[in-house]
Design a protein around this nucleic acid. Structure first.
Lengths: 226, 226
DNA sequence: CATTTATCTTAAGAATGTCTTAAGAATTAT
DNA sequence: ATAATTCTTAAGACATTCTTAAGATAAATG
């Protein structure tokens, strides 16, 4: 799960980033709206945390912009102003949640979780794709009720496929989602092959085959027949 | 016994929480209905204390909602309005009891006890997970009727696992529950390893094994098969 | 059909995370 | 004040996962 944090205070930015990283998220950050816009133009995020009280620019404007461009990302507004005006305005513009400073990090985390669940899984506890069941809060995956032990990268990869099922994803977009914006400069993404193979193998060992189809020269397609 | 307290006044919230914790309950709190709803989506509670005079939102609405979703939880309404209208309305919507502010904590406690006794007929306050029995009131733990001597940290750790059974908890969240909010900034949480080991060992010595599963790089999962 | 390019497979070393142990510090009980 | 218990620190052992690299296989191109 990839998060963009827009926050100008270096200290706060660092500690939020650190915390969310430890919670297993891939976190990127921007210190102002210009940089944030740039990033949003280049990348897709699952969730965007935006402090709307930044010195330059109107915070609510960027919420509107983000909402227009990043259709998939959920937006959580962070604000010191605890006026309900701001809250209402933000939510009207399409933000999904609102968090007043100061907040504690666990609280932020549970908001993010709730948001992701609402957006990605229609609020369901488990994702069921034929014989495959994924329960995000357990971080567990089963095939025909049998548990499949996936590593972090394999799990992230599977989740990325699932949330893009029946859609072709490029190696670039996979790399970006699993490794972040550092992955641009990487000359090759060969390790994807390795993780993908391990994932396929583990699923295959449980009798699960033909899900991740390779599209030569383009990318991959996680196929699910309804 | 897990209780959710919905109360906006920080002082009151803190003191009720503190008191009930000392009485052996596991207490979580939410300051408004949105947060309360999120928590209810995530957890099951045995009892929910809800202050229906919160500034935002209609308190009676949430009683209705809670009753629909959390079928198991008993609901006690707290209210400053001591009008019998409110009382009747609340009880009609499915609340189990009604307590007018100001109340004293002992009174609250006996209401909770009565409610829990009514609901779990036998009136015992133990948490039973297969061969493990925990009696929060006594801070005691037994495995197959044999007592297990746990230290404070070990007990807290076990209780945290139990209240998050079948869910992955990160080291961060463990640290936060055992050492408080300051632990965010701690660079390493290595002592968790030690307490966890001691807990595992004590359980294992009584023949209790495979409960706390390590999820490499992510956290731990206290597994209980229903 | 030969060549190029992309993907797959395998295995080993690097990096990271977890477990265990023991000893000193802090706390609590006697 | 002394003893007992519990908590924290630190260090090394151990385990898992990630990345790297190189050779094998498969697909596209002319």
């Amino acid at each position: 799960m990839k998060i963009l944090l827009i926050e100008d205070e270096p200290e706060l930015r660092k500690s939020i980033k650190q915390y969310l990283y430890q919670e297993g998220y891939l976190v990127e950050s921007a210190e102002d709206f210009v940089k944030a816009s740039d990033k949003c133009a280049d990348y897709e995020y699952d969730c965007i945390l935006v402090d709307i009280t930044l010195p330059k620019g109107n915070g609510l404007d960027i919420v509107k912009k983000l909402k227009q461009n990043q259709s998939k990302a959920g937006i959580i507004i962070i604000s010191a102003k605890n006026s309900s005006d701001d809250k209402i305005a933000g939510l009207d513009l399409g933000a999904d949640d609102y968090l007043a400073k100061p907040f504690n990090l666990a609280e932020l985390n549970s908001r993010i979780k709730a948001l992701l669940r609402r957006r990605n899984f229609d609020g369901n506890k488990s994702i069921i794709i034929n014989e495959i069941t994924i329960i995000p809060e357990e971080r567990s995956v089963t095939v025909n009720q049998e548990p499949v032990n996936l590593t972090a990268k394999e799990y992230d990869l599977l989740l990325f496929f699932v949330s893009n099922k029946n859609r072709v994803v490029s190696k670039n977009s996979i790399a970006e989602h699993l490794w972040g914006d550092d992955s641009d400069q990487m000359d090759n993404h060969d390790f994807i092959y390795v993780h993908l193979r391990n994932l396929r193998k583990k699923l295959m060992d449980k009798g699960c085959t033909d899900y991740v189809k390779t599209i030569y020269g383009i990318g991959y397609n996680f196929k699910v027949n309804p």
